[in-house]
Every structure is written in C-alpha cells, then in structure tokens.
C-alpha cells in the first residue's frame, strides 16, 4: 500500500504556524509516522461497523434552555488586548475585493 504524504507546509499555513526549516523536517517525520499508524488501522475490516464520533459510549448530554449568568461586559473586556465602546478591538482582517 502506498504511504500517504502530509504536506507540512500547507498544514502549517492553515494553522497559521511559522516553521523553521529544522522544525518542518522534524514534524514531517513525526507526522509521517502517525499516518503510518492509520495505514495499519485501515487494514482492519470495518464493514458494518458504525463510525465512532466519540471514544466513550455516552450520548445525549444536554442542558435545558435556561439562562445562567455569564460575564458582565466590563469583566469580559478585561482580557481584551484593546477595547473601545464595549467592543474587542483587533486588527482589521478583511477578505479584500
């Protein structure tokens, strides 16, 4: 079976990570190793097995639709790097046209 390749540079870009060349090589090796485990799992016959969304067989953990107190805006904004008029202020990121 062909060994799948992971494009570390692409994944790093998606995750907004800046990697040094040494790091890129290191992670490439590690991720390739992880992928090879999945290749082994892939060889197990799973026809008729329901896909698992969670490792624990627990379902339907709900809360009722009832309000609970949260933060006041003053408290919430204490963690803001910058704020004005009750808003978190961040650098503008616009998908430019």
């Amino acid at each position: 079976m062909e060994q799948p390749q992971i494009n570390v540079e692409y994944v790093a870009r998606l995750a907004r990570l800046e990697l040094e060349p040494e790091e890129r090589d290191l992670f490439q090796g590690q991720l390739d190793q992880i992928l090879s485990y999945f290749e082994r799992i892939r060889q197990v016959a799973v026809e008729g097995v329901e896909p698992t969304a969670h490792t624990r067989p627990v379902y339907n953990v709900f809360r009722e639709d009832e309000p609970t107190p949260g933060f006041s805006s003053e408290v919430a904004l204490k963690n803001a790097p910058s704020s004005a008029d009750g808003l978190f202020i961040v650098p503008r990121i616009v998908e430019t046209s």
Binding site: D65, E66, P67, T68, G70, S73
Partner: peptide, 28 residues
C-alpha cells in the same frame, strides 16, 4: 427561538443589547 445560546446559558439577545453583555467563557 431559544432563550439561550447553543452551548452555554448566555441569553440570546437582539441588536439593542449593549455589546458583549451576554457572554461567558464558552462563547468567548
């Protein structure tokens, strides 16, 4: 039409609510 948000107990508000007045660690 729920009273609270999807994953926390913060109230769903309309546009008249002061900004960041219905927030908690989950929805932040």
């Amino acid at each position: 039409a729920t009273q609270t948000k999807l994953f926390c107990g913060c109230r769903t508000t309309d546009s008249n609510a002061p900004p960041n007045s219905s927030v908690c660690p989950v929805c932040l």
